[in-house]
Design a protein around this nucleic acid. Structure first.
Lengths: 143, 143, 143, 143
DNA sequence: TTTT
DNA sequence: TTTT
């Protein structure tokens, strides 16, 4: 079956890239997506969700190169569950408390930065790649 | 900022409807979304994610009336975070362990059941409502 | 059945608001969503899609007030088909040619502008509303 | 920039597969997505949108093998515009009229058929592949 | 008609 | 707790 999650938000800290033992690049970063709304009592409420985003291979290398703390990004991907519970993974922190996070395996990443904001970081004029399926020439299409 | 999650899956147990103190209907049910894939070693892996879905008001009444355990559904909505951590809410279970879940506040629910499967439950021929914005007559459009 | 389209892009011209005969506000504007990619011959190709967005009622008033030509926006909505063909509507232009367009009835609109860019137009610090379901107090939730 | 379209609907005719001159498989089929709603006068309206779906390579081969007329499917992909207008492509039909269509380049295809319906065609027990990113072993993850 |  |  299908699920997908699409998030627009701001990167919380500079991305970090590592390599798997087999040499595949993996980049991780957090994205905060906030909204304000008014509750039933008419009070303004600010809600922030944090997502932990991972991406792989070529997408990892570009994210590591071009995305920086504070950048506005759009992410599409899949939630990564705990394989035994089917829910979010639970972590034991060093202080004895437990926490959980929304982990996303990204399939698509787009920078929403504009030229003025990005100064050499990710935006469309700086060569940040827009992830897309391999293209095929129109002349190559048989219909 | 924006986020949305779209899930296709199967309902784990019959929906339950309650009312808020102010009289608003709230229906809850779980949806399992499973997929098989082959890992790097070529082994088949089955991954199931469980979502806890809530819906409100008219959508709650219809879900309670028409959706049943086992039905295939499509859900669109927003993740509901813990307001202090911005991550998934953590629950203390009676056995002393903790767990977390993907909670979705549904905006759209569609039954993917077919007539033969549904026998009086939700499908498009049985009157299950497709949630949609209030329509406006074409003649009413000023352009 | 379900369909949804999610678009990030730039507004092509200032939005225009009108009213239906029954007094409902309707705002229309165009959004361009461009991407560059390399084709099979390794040549850079620029592809731009234009969407004609309509929104209604409160969303229409806010779009008319806060969105301006050039703003970056995120739109979620439904495609509006020709009711007889089920495809895009076809228009006869004054020069005798025909054209078609991707019309979207927006359910969600988010400004992706940042404070520095927007100078009094739509951004999250200027009070642009984030469209959302009516909220219900946590204390009101019966589970 | 980003756009994506997600459609649930029924396949209108058996898929057809061809090959590009360079030998890439391309499969095409139509999907109808219908909904009923009540208009401002309270009358039931049925709206059907037709999408023309293309997919490539391995996805094309599977679609050609497993999807049949009448199957319920979920499609995610991108709209394919006319490269000069940025709108839908316009076709001249043999009878002199013009038409346009919503063309989708599919990235994801899921069969929503159930065992009883599919009898050897696409469903999850018959080996229909769920399109997904290449997986990487958990042990391979460096964090 | 936008933007980078 | 679902489904294939």
């Amino acid at each position: 079956m299908f699920h997908t999650i699409i998030v627009a938000g701001n990167i919380g800290r500079d991305p970090e890239m590592r390599y798997t033992p087999s040499g595949v690049a993996v980049t991780s970063f957090s994205v905060a997506s906030s909204r304000q709304y008014s509750n039933a009592q008419g009070q303004a409420v600010k809600e922030t969700i944090w997502f932990r985003v991972s991406c792989w291979s070529k997408l990892a290398e570009y994210a590591n190169t071009y995305l920086k703390k504070g950048n506005k990004v759009l992410i599409e991907g899949r939630l990564v569950p705990d394989t035994t519970t089917g829910g979010p993974r639970i972590w034991n922190r060093s202080d004895g408390t437990t926490s959980a996070s929304y982990e996303i395996n990204a399939v698509t990443i787009r920078s929403l930065a504009t030229r003025s904001e990005s100064e050499g970081t990710a935006n469309n004029s700086s060569g940040f790649p827009e992830y897309s399926e391999p293209s095929i020439e129109e002349d190559d299409i048989p219909f």
